[in-house]
Design a protein around this nucleic acid. Sequence first.
DNA 1: TGTACATCAGTGAACGCGCGTTCACTGATGTAC
DNA 2: TGTACATCAGTGAACGCGCGTTCACTGATGTAC
Lengths: 204, 204
Amino acid sequence: MAAKAAVSRKDAYHHGDLRAQLIRATQALIEERGPEKFSVADACRLAGVSTAAPYRHFDTKQDMLEAAALDGIRRKYQRMCAAAAQHPPGSMEGLSAFGIAYVEFAIAEPELFRMIFSIAGREDCANPISDTGEMIYAACIDSVTRYMGKSEPDDESSMISLSLWTVVHGLSFLAIDGKLKHPDGSPVDFREVIRSTGGRILRQ
Amino acid sequence: MAAKAAVSRKDAYHHGDLRAQLIRATQALIEERGPEKFSVADACRLAGVSTAAPYRHFDTKQDMLEAAALDGIRRKYQRMCAAAAQHPPGSMEGLSAFGIAYVEFAIAEPELFRMIFSIAGREDCANPISDTGEMIYAACIDSVTRYMGKSEPDDESSMISLSLWTVVHGLSFLAIDGKLKHPDGSPVDFREVIRSTGGRILRQ
DNA sequence: TGTACATCAGTGAACGCGCGTTCACTGATGTAC
DNA sequence: TGTACATCAGTGAACGCGCGTTCACTGATGTAC
């Protein structure tokens, strides 16, 4: 699916939403061609504005990319929380849903998923992207702690959280790299893997 | 550590090794500045040759990047095999060493590690990078099958291999993104995690 | 061993292109009176 | 309600730059005789 101009030039003037729209355009282009090929000019074409317009909202190209990544991880966090909220807090089902939403986001927006982590990994100092990542991890530790019937996180619950995160993170990358297959080529259901592996880790 | 010219212009002439040297330069630059910032011209400066020289060995910039990734995954495969070969075939220790070498490669060359998988994941058709990945996975299945005392891989041994791969792949990304920490900030020893989680998965 | 020559693997200058960014500008909007 | 004006958020033209790639070339090497 080729990206197309979403807004006519006329409507773009003072529409009050250009920042958000440029972020969407950036994300769409990254998925379509990869972050290496991304250009500010392309994002402008897609949003239907002049190439100077983004500089009212972002300092540099790098800022645009980081804003796109930040928007991505925030959406991811929201979806994970929404999925977990369908189940009792601290339940096995809630934890599974939390992890499943993690992998689903990676599958839905693989290039953005990759970019989120390569930015968060490359930046030395604390930044909003890492902060949101910390919130996700904190929510995981909290659920695990509740699941185990404890009032405060301890070494055990945090090590278990790390194991769960490892599995979910690993599954995400294997899924978007097309490796989640049985030897005969049939697809592996990552939800099943999360439920079974997650169960085994939690029950030790 | 800034990359520096490794060879004087004089020596570069007909040195018979320019292809390999450009690959090393490409890898060094990717680690230093990230793949987005990589340019053919920079690689030439680092190798001490003119900007036209690479075109004796590569068709395009993209070819150079792919050659760098292919060289990377082949080195990784060799190191993993060398590490596993220190232990009896099909032993727990051999499997752990195999996985530990996987994560160690990711930690040593994080940007190359990322690039290997984003190229392998993005390419539709089979390519040499994916082929090498398949060899690594096949070696894992083989070891697991031996460990379980079976003569042929079956559903069980391949599912266990997938779980092990998930853990090792996930740990690699968490490690290079600086997430392998206890809540108090002290580092988590990924070798311990591999041995313990791997043991639990293998023993079910 | 010496010479002629084909081939290989570089050089260095040049190219056109698209990019990121800047600038003076202007049309649209909201508000004070 | 109508008008004047400050501010906001765009335009469009332009810039200089560095890039990927091409080209005719040339020095070094290996080989046939």
